[in-house]
Design a protein around this nucleic acid. Structure first.
Length: 308
DNA sequence: AAGACGAAAGTGGTTGA
DNA sequence: TCAACAACTTTCGTCTT
């Protein structure tokens, strides 16, 4: 859903500004500038990660608690010392202290971890300029991962990055693993690994990302016109209709579509430039590009603009 | 000289026996 | 658990603009 907003583009002073609320992006239709992508997404997704048997128990009870608060204001405590005197036998007293000690030890450990992790999450999230809704989703995912003990054997940072990556995908504003790697300082292999592991263990279903989701950001980074941008999306739609997109990496396809569109509209970018912002190699762009012009009889369009 | 093209070998992940 | 495999990368030589 795209709706118009009353604002001026800081780059070209155009009023031709569009907001894509779902993606938290605001784009100038004239110069293609992505003005801000930190809008609040009100369409909150509710999902329960508790393994309580009820598979799809989506809860809508109570006020929305921010998952980025490190303990949601809900600590646990096993009794107080005042309770101690109500107990009878030595056995019971021993038991009481043991439990109390354990509980404190565990919950403070978890809380401390969560506190540090959420700070890191916030840092990475703001570095990538992600909307608040994504940040919160990532925080929820991270919390579930901690509760299931999935962080053990993995670095906290990599799980944070994985959770953020997953949250972006769920909100259909995918970032590449490269971007996530740069923001978090974790190698992209590692992020991919923890991402897969965490999503599998928590049974978070994520649809394969749509190449078109990458177009606005890539086009903006390449300073391509909105016309070129929509041409790229158009190409992607055609490509999807004839099953050219399945099985291929979405960033590669997006990059190739953008490359072709830039040729057609006489705003040529080199394969190298497009490859860099998309985080793929020129070879991949070439392969996708070849398939595109072949199967979409696009060659004549490209030729036409070449001669001009 | 830079960009585009393509071949060949290598990498990491998925799948199916 | 292992091997085949598909997609993508790296590297490098050649052609085109």
């Amino acid at each position: 859903m795209i709706r118009k907003a009353l604002k001026e583009c800081p780059e070209c002073a155009s009023r031709n500004i569009f907001r894509n609320v779902e993606k938290g992006e605001t784009i100038c239709r004239d110069c293609g500038l992505v003005i801000e992508d930190r809008m609040v997404d009100f369409s909150q997704e509710w999902r329960s990660f508790e393994d309580d048997g009820g598979q799809d128990s989506k809860r809508r009870t109570g006020a929305p608690s921010s998952a980025t608060q490190f303990d949601q204001g809900l600590g646990t405590e096993v009794g107080t010392t005042a309770d101690f005197y109500k107990l009878g036998s030595d056995r019971e007293r021993d038991r009481f202290f043991r439990l109390r000690k354990w509980n404190i030890r565990i919950s403070t450990a978890i809380e401390r971890n969560l506190k540090v992790a959420l700070a890191e999450l916030k840092r990475v999230s703001s570095y990538l300029r992600l909307p608040k809704s994504v940040e919160e989703e990532a925080a929820r995912i991270y919390r579930s991962a901690v509760q299931k003990g999935l962080v053990r054997g993995r670095s906290m940072e990599s799980v944070v990055a994985g959770a953020l990556y997953a949250a972006c995908r769920r909100h259909e504003i995918p970032r590449t693993l490269d971007e996530m790697g740069e923001a978090s300082g974790i190698e992209k292999k590692e992020i991919g690994r923890t991402y897969r592991f965490v999503t599998r263990e928590l049974e978070i279903s994520i649809r394969p990302s749509n190449p078109a989701d990458y177009i606005p950001r890539f086009a903006s980074a390449l300073k391509l016109s909105p016309e070129t941008q929509s041409k790229a999306v158009e190409i992607l739609e055609q490509a999807r209709d004839i099953e050219l997109t399945s099985g291929r990496g979405p960033t590669g396809i997006a990059a190739a579509a953008l490359y072709v569109a830039s040729l057609i509209h006489g705003e040529k970018r080199t394969q190298r430039e497009v490859a860099d912002v998309a985080g793929v190699t020129e070879v991949t762009i070439r392969n996708r590009y070849k398939e595109l012009i072949k199967k979409l009889k696009l060659s004549k369009d490209v030729e036409k603009t070449k001669k001009k």
